[in-house]
Protein backbone atom coordinates (compact mmCIF):
# COMPACT_ATOMS: atom_id res chain seq x y z
CA UNK A 1 0.00 0.00 0.00
CA UNK A 2 2.66 2.50 1.04
CA UNK A 3 4.94 1.22 -1.70
CA UNK A 4 2.19 1.88 -4.22
CA UNK A 5 1.83 5.45 -2.94
CA UNK A 6 5.57 5.99 -3.15
CA UNK A 7 5.67 4.62 -6.72
CA UNK A 8 2.85 6.90 -7.83
CA UNK A 9 4.62 9.95 -6.43
CA UNK A 10 7.90 8.77 -7.97
CA UNK A 11 6.34 8.34 -11.41
CA UNK A 12 4.67 11.75 -11.29
CA UNK A 13 7.97 13.32 -10.31
CA UNK A 14 9.67 11.65 -13.29
CA UNK A 15 7.51 13.77 -15.56
CA UNK A 16 8.82 16.99 -14.05
CA UNK A 17 11.66 18.60 -15.98
CA UNK A 18 15.11 18.24 -14.49
CA UNK A 19 15.88 21.46 -12.65
CA UNK A 20 19.65 21.17 -12.50
CA UNK A 21 22.22 19.57 -14.80
CA UNK A 22 23.62 17.47 -11.97
CA UNK A 23 23.12 13.72 -12.21
CA UNK A 24 21.22 12.40 -9.24
CA UNK A 25 19.81 15.74 -8.15
CA UNK A 26 16.07 15.67 -7.59
CA UNK A 27 13.42 16.53 -5.06
CA UNK A 28 12.82 12.99 -3.94
CA UNK A 29 9.16 13.57 -3.17
CA UNK A 30 8.64 9.82 -2.82
CA UNK A 31 10.87 9.98 0.24
CA UNK A 32 7.96 11.53 2.13
CA UNK A 33 6.67 7.95 2.25
CA UNK A 34 10.03 6.62 3.43
CA UNK A 35 10.26 9.16 6.23
CA UNK A 36 6.67 8.48 7.23
CA UNK A 37 7.32 4.74 7.28
CA UNK A 38 10.44 5.19 9.42
CA UNK A 39 8.38 6.96 12.06
CA UNK A 40 5.35 4.71 11.93
CA UNK A 41 6.47 1.14 11.28
CA UNK A 42 9.16 -1.30 12.33
CA UNK A 43 12.61 -1.34 10.76
CA UNK A 44 11.90 -4.48 8.75
CA UNK A 45 8.65 -3.20 7.29
CA UNK A 46 10.25 0.11 6.33
CA UNK A 47 13.19 -1.66 4.68
CA UNK A 48 10.73 -3.72 2.60
CA UNK A 49 8.89 -0.59 1.44
CA UNK A 50 12.15 1.13 0.46
CA UNK A 51 13.68 -1.89 -1.29
CA UNK A 52 10.57 -2.58 -3.37
CA UNK A 53 10.15 1.09 -4.18
CA UNK A 54 13.73 1.45 -5.43
CA UNK A 55 13.57 -1.76 -7.50
CA UNK A 56 10.22 -1.03 -9.14
CA UNK A 57 11.10 2.65 -9.49
CA UNK A 58 14.14 1.78 -11.60
CA UNK A 59 11.97 -0.51 -13.74
CA UNK A 60 9.44 2.26 -14.33
CA UNK A 61 12.18 4.78 -15.13
CA UNK A 62 13.63 2.21 -17.54
CA UNK A 63 17.11 2.89 -16.22
CA UNK A 64 18.63 -0.12 -14.54
CA UNK A 65 22.04 1.53 -14.24
CA UNK A 66 20.66 4.11 -11.86
CA UNK A 67 19.44 1.25 -9.68
CA UNK A 68 22.91 0.84 -8.15
CA UNK A 69 23.10 4.52 -7.21
CA UNK A 70 19.56 4.63 -5.84
CA UNK A 71 20.07 1.45 -3.87
CA UNK A 72 23.36 2.58 -2.32
CA UNK A 73 21.85 5.94 -1.39
CA UNK A 74 18.52 4.55 -0.27
CA UNK A 75 19.92 1.87 2.00
CA UNK A 76 22.46 4.17 3.67
CA UNK A 77 19.72 6.77 4.14
CA UNK A 78 17.39 4.15 5.61
CA UNK A 79 19.98 2.77 8.02
CA UNK A 80 20.83 6.29 9.21
CA UNK A 81 17.22 7.32 9.70
CA UNK A 82 16.36 4.14 11.59
CA UNK A 83 19.20 4.93 14.02
CA UNK A 84 18.21 8.59 14.25
CA UNK A 85 14.63 7.60 15.01
CA UNK A 86 15.84 6.68 18.50
CA UNK A 87 17.22 10.13 19.28
CA UNK A 88 15.05 12.51 17.25
CA UNK A 89 11.45 12.86 18.39
CA UNK A 90 8.36 13.22 16.24
CA UNK A 91 8.42 16.99 16.46
CA UNK A 92 11.73 17.13 14.61
CA UNK A 93 11.19 14.67 11.79
CA UNK A 94 12.45 17.23 9.28
CA UNK A 95 15.87 17.16 10.97
CA UNK A 96 16.00 13.40 10.60
CA UNK A 97 14.93 13.78 6.96
CA UNK A 98 17.75 16.23 6.18
CA UNK A 99 20.34 13.89 7.68
CA UNK A 100 18.78 11.03 5.72
CA UNK A 101 19.07 13.05 2.51
CA UNK A 102 22.72 13.81 3.28
CA UNK A 103 23.42 10.11 3.80
CA UNK A 104 21.57 9.34 0.56
CA UNK A 105 23.82 11.76 -1.34
CA UNK A 106 26.95 10.29 0.23
CA UNK A 107 25.82 6.77 -0.70
CA UNK A 108 25.02 7.82 -4.29
CA UNK A 109 28.39 9.49 -4.74
CA UNK A 110 30.26 6.57 -3.19
CA UNK A 111 28.50 4.22 -5.62
CA UNK A 112 29.39 6.53 -8.51
CA UNK A 113 33.05 6.59 -7.49
CA UNK A 114 33.13 2.78 -7.40
CA UNK A 115 31.19 2.38 -10.68
CA UNK A 116 32.99 5.03 -12.70
CA UNK A 117 36.35 4.37 -11.05
CA UNK A 118 37.15 8.04 -10.92
CA UNK A 119 37.19 10.06 -7.76
CA UNK A 120 36.58 13.37 -9.52
CA UNK A 121 32.83 12.73 -9.47
CA UNK A 122 33.10 13.75 -5.82
CA UNK A 123 32.91 17.30 -7.24
CA UNK A 124 29.18 16.70 -7.53
CA UNK A 125 28.78 15.87 -3.84
CA UNK A 126 28.63 19.44 -2.44
CA UNK A 127 25.92 20.37 -4.96
CA UNK A 128 23.96 17.26 -4.11
CA UNK A 129 24.37 18.02 -0.40
CA UNK A 130 23.04 21.58 -0.70
CA UNK A 131 20.04 20.43 -2.72
CA UNK A 132 19.64 17.41 -0.45
CA UNK A 133 19.44 19.58 2.66
CA UNK A 134 16.72 21.74 1.11
CA UNK A 135 14.76 18.85 -0.42
CA UNK A 136 15.20 16.82 2.76
CA UNK A 137 13.79 19.62 4.90
CA UNK A 138 10.76 19.97 2.61
CA UNK A 139 9.97 16.26 2.38
CA UNK A 140 10.61 15.94 6.10
CA UNK A 141 8.10 18.68 6.93
CA UNK A 142 5.56 17.05 4.63
CA UNK A 143 6.14 13.68 6.32
CA UNK A 144 5.85 15.33 9.73
CA UNK A 145 2.41 16.63 8.80
CA UNK A 146 1.35 13.17 7.63
CA UNK A 147 2.64 11.51 10.78
CA UNK A 148 0.96 13.96 13.14
CA UNK A 149 -2.37 13.75 11.28
CA UNK A 150 -2.45 9.95 10.94
CA UNK A 151 -1.06 8.91 14.31
CA UNK A 152 -3.50 10.76 16.49
Amino acid sequence: MLTAFALIIFTVELQLPTLAPVPGMKLGLANIITVYAVYSFSAGETAMVVAVRVLLGSLIAGNMVSLVYSLAGGLLCLAGMLLLRRVIDKKHIWVCSILGAVLHNIGQTAAAIVMMQTKTVIAYLPFLLVSGCIAGALTGMAAQLVVSRLNK
Binding site: L84, V87, I88, D89, K91, H92, V95, C96, I98, L99, V102, A123, L125, P126, F127, L129, V130, C133
Partner: peptide
Protein backbone atom coordinates in the same frame (compact mmCIF):
# COMPACT_ATOMS: atom_id res chain seq x y z
CA UNK B 1 24.00 15.77 24.11
CA UNK B 2 23.35 13.24 21.38
CA UNK B 3 19.70 13.14 22.47
CA UNK B 4 19.30 16.89 22.21
CA UNK B 5 17.25 18.01 19.21
CA UNK B 6 19.26 21.21 19.05
CA UNK B 7 22.44 19.21 18.56
CA UNK B 8 21.03 17.56 15.42
CA UNK B 9 19.71 20.84 14.06
CA UNK B 10 23.21 22.26 14.52
CA UNK B 11 24.65 19.24 12.67
CA UNK B 12 22.34 19.98 9.73
CA UNK B 13 23.35 23.65 9.71
CA UNK B 14 27.05 22.74 9.74
CA UNK B 15 26.64 20.23 6.88
CA UNK B 16 24.68 22.79 4.84
CA UNK B 17 27.22 25.57 5.38
CA UNK B 18 30.18 23.28 4.73
CA UNK B 19 28.71 22.02 1.44
CA UNK B 20 27.94 25.57 0.31
CA UNK B 21 31.58 26.52 0.91
CA UNK B 22 32.68 23.31 -0.82
CA UNK B 23 30.54 24.23 -3.86
CA UNK B 24 32.31 27.57 -4.12
CA UNK B 25 35.71 25.90 -3.81
CA UNK B 26 34.85 23.47 -6.61
CA UNK B 27 33.55 26.25 -8.85
Amino acid sequence: MIRSQKFWIAVCAVIFAASAVWCILVL
